[in-house]
Design a binder for these strands. Sequence first.
DNA 1: GATGAATGAGGATTCATTCAT
DNA 2: GATGAATGAATCCTCATTCAT
Lengths: 195, 195, 195, 195
Amino acid sequence: MVSNADEGATRSKRADARRNEKTLLDAAAAVFVTSGVEAPVRDIAAKAGVGMGTIYRHFPTRADLIVAVYRHQVDACAEAGPELLASSDSPYEALRRWIDLFVDFLVTKHGLAAVLQSDNAGFETLHTYFLDTLVPVCARLLDAAAGADEIRSDLRAIEVLRAVGNLCIGADSDPRYDARRMVGVLIAGLRHQDG
Amino acid sequence: MVSNADEGATRSKRADARRNEKTLLDAAAAVFVTSGVEAPVRDIAAKAGVGMGTIYRHFPTRADLIVAVYRHQVDACAEAGPELLASSDSPYEALRRWIDLFVDFLVTKHGLAAVLQSDNAGFETLHTYFLDTLVPVCARLLDAAAGADEIRSDLRAIEVLRAVGNLCIGADSDPRYDARRMVGVLIAGLRHQDG
Amino acid sequence: MVSNADEGATRSKRADARRNEKTLLDAAAAVFVTSGVEAPVRDIAAKAGVGMGTIYRHFPTRADLIVAVYRHQVDACAEAGPELLASSDSPYEALRRWIDLFVDFLVTKHGLAAVLQSDNAGFETLHTYFLDTLVPVCARLLDAAAGADEIRSDLRAIEVLRAVGNLCIGADSDPRYDARRMVGVLIAGLRHQDG
Amino acid sequence: MVSNADEGATRSKRADARRNEKTLLDAAAAVFVTSGVEAPVRDIAAKAGVGMGTIYRHFPTRADLIVAVYRHQVDACAEAGPELLASSDSPYEALRRWIDLFVDFLVTKHGLAAVLQSDNAGFETLHTYFLDTLVPVCARLLDAAAGADEIRSDLRAIEVLRAVGNLCIGADSDPRYDARRMVGVLIAGLRHQDG
DNA sequence: GATGAATGAGGATTCATTCAT
DNA sequence: GATGAATGAATCCTCATTCAT
């Protein structure tokens, strides 16, 4: 349907567009750091040096943009799950370390944890992506640890993730609050209690 | 409509003002329940049957209003601390029950937990009131439990309260997430680990 | 519930507000003349020398504003119906003259005829007001003329009004098109045909 | 318009171009049916499977596109005039039937009647084409009917066409309004009145 | 010639806050 | 003291049109 010549043209276009999208993502990431993930679209466009329409073209909703910005890191986090399970001394240890990765990710993203919990429709995509990607990984780690009788077996991945996410809210704006530590406490609480 | 004890203009004025303020607080509380603590000022004024200016006169900032609305309950929670300590089998048990009270309070206040963590300046008053009131109580409970060697001794009241508050965010909008349960896990995590 | 003093205050407020609303209506009418009834809200606000919010306060939707601007004239038109029926030589004559009034109204309102036919939701109020007010009047005139065997009896008021309204669209922007004349032809067409 | 001597590469190119243009017109016609003649250019381009630039190359203004889409049908309508005049029992009958053709055309084109009356500059081309093509035909029919003393002789073709066009506005969006019927009334109104 | 990414004007709407009455 | 009308900044989103590849 398309001649080789056309293919060439198309490809170069695509390369351009991809480079441009990269610019957008970098700009968005930068703005997210300073103004949070709910920054005005106009600001992101300005930072990227493009028109607002360009943002909308690439990312119809803000959630799409956020997902795109963090997709790689979320994916990396997901992929680390099985690896940790294989390389750790125990399933619980793997779980602990995996949660640490997740927390590291969240606490460095200003406001991300907050919108992750937002009940605002329109963040649907964001919720979905996070949950679809991370819940299965977390579930497997929980199962393994529960199977080894290291932790309680009555907690579902989704609530653990949600709790961890919640604990990370505002972690970057208050020096008196150390989200990592508190997540540590939560994860410790997963262990069986000796009474 | 006018109290029997109506004597002297001054006293009746004060009584009126207090009655008026009571009306405002009741209205605000009602609106908070349905629309969250970030409801438009106009809605609250309408519910109270007063002008918006009246709200602003009594409560210069939204935080002042929120504080006023929940002061009694926060105070009651604070007062319950020493009582629980005296009446419980152990300091840890007292702590657990006190945290339960705090959680009960938060999860029934739509959106309160969220603004409690908001880094938005202007909620200063709110943060201050909550912390000033509850941190000492929580600290005493933690100290007692740590003194009895029931829990870790390296956690400060402020971070525990903050963590509990965070865990309560969005508790009322997602049936899959049970904040009370997760707070239970966190509090369990305060115990010394045997592993 | 309201003291006399308050009543005074309230009344003066109301008087002010009413005066202000008058300003708004005059401004809107003026802008409608030059830019049509779909003029930007900002333009109307500017013309009235008020903020946009003021327009929205008084008239939540554009249709509400249009209705308010033309209500008096629509009402006057409706009231003229029975009078014409009483004072004219024949029901048909009354109908003819009443339609003339309606046309006079429409052709002097730039773009009004157009939005009257718009299927755009949000003009609901406008449609409703026009139809509720004028259809019964027109129906009575049609009935009378049909009863006198002066015109066909198979046409409903709503379609006659709609047709007349349609014929007025764009009447003010094309000197070659005389809406009044063509409406005259339409009304003539209501008569029984002898052929 | 095209010289006979045009042979070789040029011709095949032209054939391609024509085929391409055909695709565009078909796509535009299809989109016009579903979304009206004011549908976004992007939608038309997408339907045709071409870039938006291609649309603009072929049809600099939306009016040009609309004209091109409907040219055949407008032309056919124009051509039917003389034929009807020749084959009908009377000039008036021919006029009536011709107007029916015009109405059939308009009411099946969602929104076309509306933009035909739009005073928006940029539809210049559209107005011009319609009028240049149809006014002479209509004029001849009117003249013939007037010459046979079947109708009034004081109406110009342009206003009759405009009136008919107006009556067709919105005919497809309101089941209570039957444009064909009302046009029938209008055309009946052209007849001499018997008193 | 074709493509479609980019632009950015344009218009709507909300709501915290002020201030004349 | 109370009122609530007025303000207007802030933000969202769409789509016609241009132009580099």
